[in-house]
Design a binder for these strands. Structure first.
Lengths: 341, 341
DNA sequence: TACACTTGCACCATCGAAGGTGCATATTGC
DNA sequence: GCAATATGCACCTTCGATGGTGCAAGTGTA
């Protein structure tokens, strides 16, 4: 090169030569510790000028190696196929950047092995923290990270090995169920219920809590629920579709209401209606524990639960920054129930 | 600690002491170059055993510092608020992992400054490549990266400084428009059209191509389009909503069809119908250049364009791996038009 | 003028891994 | 039985940034 700029990225050593100073001086100026090191204002200005001219950017790998702190913060999410996790990732990234951290979000498709693999990669790159969102096995990740001296935090699904920030699934499920009940044809509420719960995994904490809320809301109005009405058939759309189909075949008709445990399951439910009984979409009272702008418009009767992403992410960073607060076990955040009549 | 395991992560030096060998031997064994270095099978096995016992994980920062290759591959996406970018991110991550790379996806909210900031962060962490997906200004990012010796690739929106993989927006727009025309009340096709194009940004390459396809499809059936029918009002939902509202006020009624330029814009359109004329959703022929499982069900008449994510991502990694192929300028991939009658 | 401080910077080891090189010991060929 | 080669591993520098330490020159005090 003839313009004095190398084709390689300049290092503090290059800048030191260009300014007739030393690497430690350049380093101190560019990382902000120069006052402590009593570098003169004039020299600092000059070095900064040359650094900009040369397009210097500190090698974070080298810095991390030396300081034992990467400023990388990782987040594991299950999927990008719904608004909730998308919003979580977006809010997470924004807050991380605001704090000068480098956010790394990766989706692990609800695959426990992939979760571990992703966590191991993050650990290899020496992330400072890992946030497990909706992880199928947060404790396993927490243990793995603990062995590496890395603290984790759980979001959406609670774990026992790390502080957890989750939605108040029980309370929101109670409210959503009451809302569905209130929209049943008159005369139904108070009698034995005809609302099906579809979707989710029984082992899931959240699904368990939602079923508990679903049951308690029924109990409050004196209605009973038969076993066949609780159908945690998994999250995939086609599973919900099949589950509803089985229910209808078994019971000989549609239920009066459906509590759907996620937008993904809702996809299957709507598919079923499209295939089998499109008018049902207008007559059955739908409630979905999740939020999606289009889904909210479907059937014109779908109430939805929208989890409070901003508050959850604010709490997350509070916990990350304050070891005292971090001791808390499970912190619940109340979601919003968006009612449609 | 009493069990011989330090509370710090073990390094190759720790393992060398534990096995009475040297750091270079341990390093060679654990990074696979041990045969080349003529380490005996027996010693290699022993070192690997101890490494596993100690929970060793190589410090990728140190490795990257030494080898000048981080194995990190970055991707910038605008938003996680639609399925297209979610699917792109997911497919990208999967393919990167399959190749032993560490994928880093970040969303920049269609903010040109945030795009640059994110790219700079990635460069500071010495990513090997950056993939710009739907970037507002891919050339600016490409130039920045080029100054750091990092190659970029564009996806979804083309740039002039790097190879680009995009959808064939023109062809798909022609097909989508024809589909809308075919669903107009009989007698309309062939006359001057009554289909509005709403959403997107006029400066966007994709929006331009779609408008071109929209126009050509009209021309083919001998229909003309008045200026007021082309409304690239931006992407945000409320902008599309307002644009449709303005159109209806100005023209004194609904159009017979709407070509909506993204699911986000569709959100605004559906909102408008909800607020103003819910029956319109059933009578107006809708086509949306984007895909969403719920949106596809709306109005029961919405045809959608689903971009071919797997093929685009396969091409991306082909280009990344083969410098020859990388020379190509813009590669177009034909999306699928999902018709609903 | 001598001594104690302060100012302003350079020198150097270090973080963990990689890879060039060197040097014993073991094996082969003649 | 001896040189030539192969085998198996250790030593040492390097990547870029950080921060402890040392040291000259400048300033203040008695």
């Amino acid at each position: 090169m003839t313009d004095g700029r190398s084709d390689k990225r300049p290092t503090i050593y290059d800048l030191a030569k260009l300014t007739n100073t030393s690497a430690s001086t350049v380093g101190a100026v560019l990382n902000g510790s120069w006052k402590k090191r009593r570098i003169s204002q004039k020299l600092a200005d000059q070095i900064r000028k040359v650094a900009i001219e040369q397009g210097y950017s500190p090698n974070m790998q080298a810095r991390a190696l030396r300081t034992e702190r990467s400023n990388i913060i990782g987040m594991i999410v299950p999927m990008y196929d719904n608004r909730y996790f998308g919003a979580l990732a977006e809010a997470f990234e924004q807050r991380a950047r605001d704090r000068g951290l480098f956010p790394i979000v990766t989706c692990t498709r609800r695959d426990p092995n992939l979760e571990i693999e992703a966590a191991q990669s993050m650990l290899a790159y020496r992330v400072d923290n890992i946030v497990c969102t909706g992880a199928t096995d947060p404790d396993r990740i927490a243990d793995l990270c603990a062995a590496h001296g890395v603290e984790t935090l759980n979001v959406d699904l609670p774990g026992t090995r790390a502080p957890s920030i989750i939605s108040d699934n029980y309370q929101a499920a109670v409210e959503l169920t009451k809302d569905i009940i209130s929209r049943l044809p008159s005369g139904c509420a108070g009698n034995d219920s005809d609302i099906v719960f579809i979707g989710g995994r029984e082992e899931d904490h959240n699904t368990g809590e939602r079923i508990r809320g679903f049951k308690d809301a029924h109990e409050e109005v004196g209605a009973r629920i038969a076993e066949a009405y609780i159908r945690p058939c998994g999250y995939a759309a086609h599973k919900a579709e099949r589950s509803l189909d089985e229910f209808v075949n078994k019971m000989g008709g549609l239920p009066k209401g459906i509590f759907i445990n996620s937008t993904i399951s809702l996809e299957g439910i709507v598919n079923w209606f499209q295939q089998n009984d499109i008018t049902g979409l207008e007559t059955v009272a739908l409630g979905c524990f999740d939020w999606d702008p289009y889904a909210a418009l479907l059937g014109n009767k779908t109430s939805m639960v929208r989890q409070n992403v901003p508050v959850m992410m604010d709490l997350l960073f509070e916990f990350l920054e304050d070891p005292e607060k971090r001791k808390a076990g499970v912190t619940q955040v109340l979601p919003e129930v968006i009612r449609r009549s």
